[in-house]
């Protein structure tokens, strides 16, 4: 599910980047005259070189998104697919249905809050452990690395099932250790979300940790040494030295985490049995699945998908924009 950690620009961030900066003369901060000079002269040649990539992108990205958008404007259920009923154009009807549905608004709010909590927790744990990695000896470092990679490599379904077992009211070791009796973690809305959050953090912090660790290693020793000589605390070093120098990397892992946690499906689906008691733990992706596949309302499911796409695009663009204003060039 996760991209190769060594790739500097993961697909999600990459496409958002291109969307934010269309080809053409550079704009924004003033630049030396060089780009302006070469700007128009290339003619078709750059496009020729870009063509293979664009064709692949169009086939794998643009076309599905186009279909998603198209279906979201139609009445398209199983009856239309198998030819029992004619396909009709609904305009914004599906979106009106969705936005008029208080349940959808609840799910949307829950998803945003849950994703935000997951992103913050993942980044906090990932960065802390990355700093820790640079402080410990080889053996504990290897152990931590291996443990993290193990968590990373575990398939989401397996991880979720194991966590569910750990927190099982009857047989789970966690309840026994904390002497919680037969407390059911999946019964309450918050405890169920907390349980899922723990699993999500567990399987996604390694990506943050490894990436940030690589970034820290690339910071020149002298800078950190200077900070240490000045008597800076660990927190201070992180805040004033490492974090600013790691900003490009942090941006990438943040966007990655936002996209990934906003789209979380497996953990919720497996751990709360498809959305929890009375649907209390539904997130958008599971909700879309329920609409699109379980009840074959493909058009409503597509509309949910489009809404998710727009939200993610907006979040990414605004985030990049904010960074740009601060003078960072990502």
């Amino acid at each position: 599910m996760r991209p190769d950690p060594n790739a500097t620009a993961p697909p999600g961030a990459g496409t958002a980047g291109t969307a934010a900066r269309p080809p053409g003369p550079a704009r924004g901060r003033p630049r030396p005259a060089a780009p302006a000079r070469t700007g128009r002269r290339g003619g078709a040649t750059p496009w020729l070189y870009l063509a293979p990539a664009l064709v692949v992108l169009a086939a794998l990205l643009v076309y599905p998104v186009y279909q998603l958008g198209l279906i979201s404007f139609l009445e398209y259920t199983q009856a239309q697919v198998s030819g029992g009923q004619p396909t009709t154009f609904q305009g914004l009807g599906n979106y009106r249905t969705l936005l008029g549905d208080p349940r959808f608004r609840d799910v949307l709010l829950a998803t945003v809050l849950f994703a935000a909590a997951c992103v913050l927790a993942t980044l906090a744990v990932g960065c802390t452990l990355a700093v820790l990695l640079t402080r410990v000896r080889a053996l504990p470092r290897t152990a931590l690395m291996l443990a993290s990679l193990g968590a990373w490599a575990t398939p989401a379904v397996t991880g979720s099932t194991v966590w569910l077992f750990l927190f099982d009211p009857d047989l789970g070791p966690v309840n026994r250790v904390l002497s919680l009796g037969d407390f059911s973690w999946t019964y309450g809305q918050y405890s169920a979300f907390l349980l899922v959050l723990l699993e999500v953090v567990w399987c996604s912090y390694p990506f943050v940790m490894v990436t940030v660790y690589a970034g820290i290693r690339a910071i020149p020793e002298e800078v950190l040494e200077a900070a240490a000589l000045d008597g800076a605390s660990s927190w201070r070093t992180w805040r004033s030295v490492m974090a600013p120098m790691l900003r490009p990397i942090l941006v990438v892992v943040t966007i990655q985490s936002v996209i990934w946690d906003f789209k979380v499906f497996t953990q919720i689906y497996v751990m709360t049995g498809g959305g929890g008691i009375a649907g209390q733990n539904l997130v958008l992706n599971v909700y879309a699945y329920q609409k699109a596949f379980a009840s074959s309302q493909y058009s409503l499911g597509s509309a949910v998908g489009v809404v998710m796409l727009l939200i993610l695009l907006a979040v990414t663009l605004v985030y990049l924009r904010l960074l740009r204003r601060q003078g960072e060039d990502i």
Binding site: Y63, V81, G83, T87
Partner: peptide, 23 residues
């Protein structure tokens, strides 16, 4: 900045209009 790629997307969409969902 959003408008340009959005327009490109829409154009690509028009080009692919022949491919309506299957029935």
């Amino acid at each position: 900045r959003i408008a340009a790629p959005a327009a490109a997307l829409a154009l690509a969409g028009l080009a692919a209009t022949a491919c309506a969902p299957a029935t």
